[in-house]
Design a protein around this nucleic acid. Structure first.
Length: 291
DNA sequence: CAGCCGTGGCA
DNA sequence: TTGCCAAGGCT
């Protein structure tokens, strides 16, 4: 069982969202920034922040010249703020080691902080048209259903997924990148995790999952991540205070965000260790690089 | 490699 | 309301 490339690409041409980072005018830097921001974060929340960043920091060297605090503030509440710090580091590396040009090949991209298996291939394909498999959670789900007849892919990605999609990539090279984008878009709009809209799916006639009678998911359970009461929530609350103030704040201010002293202090320590918070000379706390 | 790292919308 | 989910990466 395979996927009808023409059918999929035709659907993509008519149904794809008009996202700014898909514009032919969008730079490779713009694509890279969008991919980092989109890691575990919905399009609707990324869009306005991405626009702001492109206007403010149109090239890697521009972002590299900003302070960490400025970058974290501009990141706002996208979540996982270590991504912002790593993107800042990546921008500096691109500016200093690659002539301010985003690298094209996967190994070089993967060597940059914050860029892993998915993002490296997404940039190579979407920014440069390289013929490389781009496998995210959407693609894994679509392939699991349409090709393998399963309700969903397993909890974690594997090299087998990459090989899987590599075998599906069409020729010529110019169509491969659009094919990957189309697979992702189908997973985002139609072949969704919760309530797939199979009646609207262009792949319905050949879908292996459909033909198998849409069996339920029988793979290993996916780990459930709590949020309420975790260190992630407390770290978020602490960082929120610092984003919203111009001046360093005393620890007594940070102490108001969470009642449990031990957890609160541990989180503050971890933020300091991560370089997301800095302690200034008089003992107060601030975003890094702002004094 | 399993667990951790934010945030908010939606069913 | 609560649990699931959203273009992952790092250790």
């Amino acid at each position: 069982m395979s996927i009808d490339t023409d059918t999929l690409l035709d659907w993509y041409d008519h149904s794809a969202r008009d996202l700014p980072w898909r514009s032919p005018d969008c730079s490779a830097w713009g694509v890279l920034v969008s991919e980092i921001m989109l890691q575990q974060t919905p399009v609707a929340r990324v869009s306005p922040i991405w626009q702001e960043w492109m206007h403010r920091w149109p090239v890697p060297s521009a972002l590299a010249a900003a302070s960490q605090g400025e970058v974290l503030r501009a990141w706002g509440k996208l979540g996982y703020p270590r991504r912002a710090l790593r993107l800042h580091e990546a921008a500096a590396a691109i500016a200093e080691q690659h002539g301010d040009v985003v690298p094209q090949d996967v190994p070089t991209l993967e060597a940059l902080p914050g860029i892993g298996t998915y993002t490296a291939r997404a940039v190579a394909a979407f920014a440069y048209g390289r013929r490389v498999p781009v496998v995210d959670t959407n693609v894994r789900r679509v392939v699991a259903r349409a090709v393998h007849g399963s309700a969903d892919a397993g909890p974690s990605a594997s090299k087998a997924d990459l090989a899987d999609v590599d075998a599906l990539l069409p020729t010529p090279d110019s169509r491969a990148a659009r094919f990957s984008a189309a697979l992702m878009e189908l997973g985002a709009l139609v072949c969704t995790a919760r309530a797939p809209r199979c009646q609207d799916c262009p792949l319905l006639p050949d879908c292996a999952w459909q033909r198998a009678g849409r069996p339920a998911y029988d793979g290993p359970a996916k780990p459930v991540q709590r949020f309420a009461g975790t260190d992630r929530q407390v770290r978020g609350l602490l960082l929120d205070v610092l984003r919203d103030t111009d001046e360093p704040v005393p620890k007594t201010r940070l102490d108001t965000v969470w009642p449990q002293d031990g957890q609160r202090d541990r989180c503050l320590d971890s933020l300091l260790a991560d370089g997301l918070v800095e302690q200034v000379e008089d003992g107060r706390f601030a975003l890094p690089g702002e004094q």
